[in-house]
Design a protein around this nucleic acid. Structure first.
Lengths: 171, 171
DNA sequence: CTGACTACTTGCATTATGCAACTAGTTGTG
DNA sequence: CACAACTAGTTGCATAATGCAAGTAGTCAG
């Protein structure tokens, strides 16, 4: 474990922490998928991370202060992974990547609906979503909200696309 | 060259294109460092990319439509690398990473001054900078601007930090 | 008490990255 | 014209990262 840092540039340092193919996928699944346990992260997403990589990345993200880990009181072997404030503030990065990917890459409809909601909601929606994440992950006091929570809005939009799809392509 | 795509999620697809330790460093150097030639990209930055990786990434970014390449009329062996609109629109992603890195990672002052300007300038500065990049890389007609160009403002701020540093630590 | 589930680890194959040296052609200098 | 320096790479080889399948020790529900 040698201490080799390439430079003190903020973009470079950020890339050294999350600049790989999996770290931000994990953060994405925690933020948008509500996953908190190892197994949920392992089996929940389409990309299919392998268990050794997941274990390694969780360790790295923990060490970097992006995640925290606590025992699940309901099960002695389960651990609950939470975002720290630092982790929650990766949401704008994800949102920008999401927006760019949606615009320029061959995304599928059901998976890009979240990108659409994020785009349309703008900074206000992003801020509301981060507040909700602070409630969920940091135990912050709930804020007054008009209408459904941001996560619920994302989920509802996703379900709507799936429902539409089932009508068009039944079974 | 097998066609293996992990998923149609915009975040995932974006990571498949620029989710490595070098691609965004190259884009950063083109955007903020004004580098256009192979050698400038090779030797210009602190991180020290090696020539085979640089060649490979330029090829990938070209294929992805993020960069374009044209002959340099002044030198038969030089090629000029330009950003496409798609590449220019990676600026908001870089800006978010920059902002996050500046807030949470051990950045150096002279390299984080750009992050500070970007943060303070907000979306307006970003939009202006993207317009300037369109002029430089796409030959877009110049827009009316009050005050110095965004790139000039960034450069000036960087020089100012360097000058201050030289006073404190002479020689 | 058994079978499924928990969060991992281990071993091995494949792929990506990093380093140094090399190359074919080009250009500026004397 | 001769030559050194510069152009954008390539090549070969070592090391590091990733991916896959299988295994593990402890836990829990029926």
């Amino acid at each position: 474990m040698t201490e080799n840092q390439r430079s003190g540039c903020p973009i470079n340092l950020t890339l050294e922490v999350v600049g790989d193919k999996w770290s931000l996928i994990i953060i994405r699944d925690i933020i948008f998928g509500g996953r908190r346990h190892f197994n949920e992260l392992l089996t929940g997403s389409e990309e299919g991370i392998s268990s050794n990589i997941l274990a390694d990345r969780l360790k790295t993200l923990l060490a970097a202060g992006i995640l925290s880990k606590q025992d699940d009181p309901t099960h002695k072997q389960k651990a609950i992974h939470s975002l720290t404030e630092q982790g929650i503030e990766l949401l704008p990065v994800l949102a920008q990547m999401s927006s760019w990917g949606r615009k320029y890459l061959p995304v599928t409809e059901e998976l890009s609906i979240r990108a659409e909601i994020l785009d349309e909601g703008g900074p206000k929606f992003l801020a509301d979503f981060m507040d909700e994440l602070r409630e969920i992950h940091l135990g912050a006091p709930p804020k007054r909200r008009k209408g459904p929570a941001p996560s619920a809005r994302l989920r509802a939009a996703y379900e709507a696309v799936l429902a539409k799809r089932r009508k068009i392509l039944p079974r």
